[in-house]
Design a protein around this nucleic acid. Structure first.
Lengths: 340, 340
DNA sequence: TCATATAACTTAATGCATTAAGATGATAGT
DNA sequence: ACTATCATCTTAATGCATTAAGTTATATGA
């Protein structure tokens, strides 16, 4: 049985001190080139792959791993094009810095369980789980939030209110009947009109910021949002969206404009409208949000706010790594499509 | 400035030994109930969340984190329905055991970098990167492979050869002209006929096992596979698949059967065939592989081998956690659709 | 009453590494 | 020739916890 390989055992084998082996791996300037090469060669021979990272992390307080917490379930996130774009950006930028990505869902996993293994958290989307928010608030590690705010923590976001305003103002006309297909406005698992149910977390959620923007644009056009024309959709997915679109399109008077809080919702709404024999944009205009590639392949193309989620992922990592604790707003772009 | 919270500092504060604090968290039977509750209460007060996991992991050699290595890039995996199904299963089963999932791509990340933080590796799909294979072979941690074999390591898989045979034999008739749209058969970045280029890793790759199954079925029907009718597709995605399908359908004689190594390829091939005005299954029959939900929504529905990737993910985790080092073959199911 | 078992804690060795401070010998400057 | 400097390596304190073995005090039994 070969003895376990550690700094100590390797040092003894080579007849040098542990400090020297450590320096050979971490601080080349601390020893002669000849000895360093001899050591690294011998380590390779022996099969010693370098200092144990857990010990290293314990000693130095840094592990090179960044945790990305997804507000929704991993399963959902992985299938949502916006989130997966964001993840691509994060992953790319982390790789550039030779850091590793620990991905997990805030639904099921407890950050405390892994907090000691990571250098910090990038938290994507406002968690519904208030316990999680509390843990992040109290965490001693660096925490960066994306698409929502946490008191005292830096964040990366776009100006959702202004972006929503821009997209709505570009589409709305006098006399329009407007319906809003909103994302996660209340605490309900099915698509339904918001009615007078208590809204979720008015402060920081992107959905409410967007709603504010829509309402401001409507106000400016002299329009009001009728009671049942504001819909809650629990997740940005086709089934929930279709359900809502179908119901909204059946209402009297029928909306002439659908303001949708995601492109996936927008696309579903358009499909539903076409199925009913409505013409776009003559009978009904549709506005999305996010900017996903699928909207370009589909006809009519969807008017939407493009927010470049992959760049957002990269920006999030850079903000996470910087010492700067201020929050930043990223640029977005309104792109008019055939849907309006 | 409040002092750093550690076992030691908490122990001093409470006037007990570090061992007792440790036992309060890990071995309740080692101390009186009263003291334990007093300790846990005090820790909560102080904001001490429990023993540092890095130190714990260093001492005990176990961290509660399982790494899942994806042979392809994270970006791709996340968008492939088969892989994402698998991941769902893995994630679900890990959560049941209160373990955490560290997800990363074998392309960009070095397992050695995180090896010390995890309890082992579940490796999904044969990596092209031979360095990675070597690292996994040499790893001191537990390694379980899925969809390929590594000498001396347990694996989870289906019988790809037999499954491919079953699907082909159910569709093939005498006088058929057969084309195979294969996945990752050679080392090339574009879709192309395999020709006489050297095949990739004949031993364990699922693609070659499937090819063997197709060929055995053809042989049994008295058919042979003509030279340019075996195609390589670099990745299971729409663009690559369409390219290949378009080329294959333009060949003379035109194939009457397309054996496709994934459902995504099968769907793309059907779209291409319909676009050319061909009737399915009268003019051309198509067979897929994997079993993804999208094939049920599409018409004609695709004949395919269903392999229940989410159950495979769960099985992989169970096999990983068990002490059993033997490999296991999971059941699959041939489902005939309108495409044959 | 005294030996013995048990419950409840503590001591101290250990896991694997980092790093400031110290030791040693060679080189250089005057 | 003597001191200052530098390169090169070692010593030893430290990070945060686990756990076998040891210590007390209390309970049990004859």
């Amino acid at each position: 049985m070969t003895t376990k390989l550690t700094l100590k055992s390797v040092a003894k084998t080579l007849g040098v001190s542990t400090a020297t082996i450590s320096n050979a791996f971490n601080r080349p300037d601390q020893l002669s080139v000849a000895l360093r090469e001899k050591i690294l060669g011998a380590c390779h021979e022996l099969g010693y792959l370098g200092p144990n990272k857990a010990a290293q992390s314990l000693r130095t307080g840094s592990s090179g791993i960044v945790a990305v917490i997804l507000s929704d379930s991993l399963e959902y996130m992985v299938s949502d094009p916006v989130a997966s774009q964001f993840l691509q950006g994060v992953s790319r930028e982390l790789e550039r810095h030779h850091l590793h990505l620990l991905l997990f869902s805030g639904q099921a996993t407890n950050p405390d369980a892994i907090s000691d293994f990571v250098d910090g958290f990038i938290c994507y989307g406002a968690p519904r789980n208030t316990g999680l928010i509390e843990q992040l608030r109290l965490s001693k590690k660096r925490v960066l939030t994306v698409d929502f705010d946490l008191p005292g923590r830096p964040s990366v976001n776009i100006d959702n209110e202004q972006a929503a305003f821009d997209s709505a103002i570009a589409v709305l006309r006098d006399k329009d009947t407007v319906a809003v297909l909103g994302l996660r406005l209340i605490d309900a698992a099915r698509s339904q009109p918001v009615g007078d149910k208590p809204m979720w977390d008015n402060q920081s959620s992107i959905a409410h910021r967007r709603l504010d923007g829509y309402l401001r644009a409507m106000q400016q056009r002299g329009l009001t949002l009728a009671a049942d024309y504001l819909w809650h959709i629990p997740e940005s997915n086709q089934n929930y969206a279709r359900e809502a679109a179908k119901a909204v399109l059946a209402m009297t008077p029928r909306p002439t404009v659908l303001l949708c809080m995601s492109d996936l919702i927008g696309l579903s709404a358009m499909r539903e409208a076409l199925q009913l024999g409505l013409r776009i944009p003559q009978d009904i205009r549709v506005v999305g949000f996010d900017g996903i590639a699928e909207t370009l392949r589909y006809h009519p193309t969807l008017t939407s706010v493009w927010q470049f989620s992959d760049a957002k992922g990269e920006a999030a990592v850079r903000a996470f790594l910087s010492a700067d604790d201020s929050s930043q707003l990223l640029p977005y772009q309104l792109r008019l499509g055939e849907s309006s």
